[in-house]
Design a protein around this nucleic acid. Sequence first.
RNA 1: GCUGUUGUAGCUCAGUGGUAGAGCACUUCCUUGGUAAGGAAGAGGUCGUGAGUUCAAUCCUCAUCAACAGCUCCA
Length: 644
Amino acid sequence: MKINITLPDGSIREFPNGVTGSEIASSISEGLARVSLAIEVNGEVWDLSRPILSNAAIKILTWNDKAGKTTFWHSSAHLLAEALEALHPGVKFGIGPPIENGFYYDVDLGGKAFGDEDLAAVEVKMKELAKKNSVYSRKDVSKAEALEYFTAKGDPYKIELIDGLDDGKITFYQQGDFVDLCKGPHIPNTGFIKAMKLLNVAGAYWRGNEKNKMLTRIYGITFPKQKELEEYLHLLEEAKKRDHRKLGKELELFAFSEKVGMGLPLWLPKGTILRERLEQFMRKAQIKAGYDPVVTPHIGSKALYVTSGHYEKYGKDSFQPIHTPDEGEEFLLKPMNCPHHCEIYKTKPRSYRDLPIRLAEFGTVYRYEQSGELHGLTRVRGFTQDDAHIFCRPEQVKSEFIKVIDLVLHVFRSLGFENFTAQVSLRDPANKEKYIGQDHLWERAEREIQEAADEQGLQTVTVLGEAAFYGPKLDFMVKDALGRNWQLGTIQVDYQLPQRFELEYVGSDNQKHTPVMIHRAPFGSLERFVAVLIEHCAGNFPLWLAPDQIAVLPISERFNDYAKLVYDRLKEQDIRGLLDDRDEKIGRKIRDAETRKIPYMLIVGEKEVSEGMVAVRKHSQGDQGSIALDEFVNRFRLECAAPN
RNA sequence: GCUGUUGUAGCUCAGUGGUAGAGCACUUCCUUGGUAAGGAAGAGGUCGUGAGUUCAAUCCUCAUCAACAGCUCCA
């Protein structure tokens, strides 16, 4: 019996029935056979040793394939488990999957502390075990057999997992002395794993549920070559240099104080310039797009949030009400701006002719985020949203939504964020009690969001369970230096709040109608946006945002007077900069200005003084030659204009 | 909030059961220098906070606060 195997290039070859992936790889080339990790059979990844029993389209997977890496890391997780069991007999295993970079295994060490030394010891053991070239072998087992094995072994988490599986579809994998419940696939043997690093230990709730026991999660990464591990670790180090918390300190942009309170950022002068530049940019864009700026207070009476539903949802996990000398009077620090804007809407009767009304505010809000969630500027307890609420007629929702998408894209493009993900965040259908409002309005909102995104040609991913409690969202996600995803821009359709606040307008039919509300914040928050911006450009801000645009560097103190003249001239033109008149050599001044990532340096000495010139140096690009001061100023002013 | 790790000078970090050190930054002096670190001297710290063990604690124990990694959460 022969079967036909279709290779990725479309060619078809005949093999005996029951041929394995490794046999196919060998028939193609010895080199391929040496590096092949798994095989894709009709879109499914299999072990190389598994016989193929019918015609199939295949692809041999190596380290260069994503699925190859995933398989490699999955097998590495098993190796980690084997090492753990060898060193910590009786350890109970949860799950051990591959992740984007590496893998982890969740284990229950019976309450034993597991520190860095234990981690290092396990790593050594893994290396030792890997060298044994133990084969990963697959075995079909019945549900009863599977339960019997793990009951005898005393692995309650595996038993729970098996309980959820169908009989007849359960497989074990074994390498060395370690047997695991696993559907596979795996690489041929442990010898492929040449380089490994256990990265860290963390807690993780069993099955991701806060109410379950917390297991110990061990993260690691492995590679087929030592050099690749070194490169990866180097890359991690490089990424850490772009961390906004590090750069924020070095460039004096923001700070935190224990005394002020955790998660409450202090914006330093240079950071404030950056922030205000962004704010100005947004104000201008919004005025152009037909928004009306408003300003509302930082607190509001508790009744406001009872009406909005936020109090019920978040009240007990928030900053608690502020009391006044009047018995029973309570105010909340505002955790969002929408209720205030609803009250602005209600200040007078509205006609359908008035809509849409777009109220915009850089609104500072306070949310009592869990202490473990705080993270630099990306997750804080006091932050400023570039918030706005659009009140419109139902038939205007889509066109308004599209306009907002355009605004968000304009902002992202202006700041060079090309790699974002547009995420449609919907309800978790299995968990509807988390949300308010009627189904048909949710469905309508979801449809409108998806249609608007599609019409703008946005590639979207849909994520269930990420909606706000009052409505679905379109979120714009951007990765930080270390690849963590953050939500920046967000657009939300809301049919609930207008009802709760009894907002209305008079239609052309002279009847009262309820408007629809669109919440939107292109930056999301100034704090988070600045954080991601810092990491994105590694602190080398575009000229229009740079806190210090120019450093004037006199070659010696003899030229300080002329340097001051140059500096004053820049200031007159609203150019931001500094004059470095320290008694230091020019090399030193240049180094310091480079380190501080100042885009332009103007060097002045004997030659420049006599001719009214400046020697221009660009950050990280070196000497640009000399130019008359006036001409430099003219050119610079053109170059530093904000996008519009 | 949970698990683990960390907390020493403005910053980056050494170090020790007998009340502390480096480099950079800072101050002063020398130097007046042409595109990434000139030289010298000086000043600067209740070793996160509180309690305990000890003749003696920055170091050991406990508690607490904060930061970091991850989980959970995210209006």
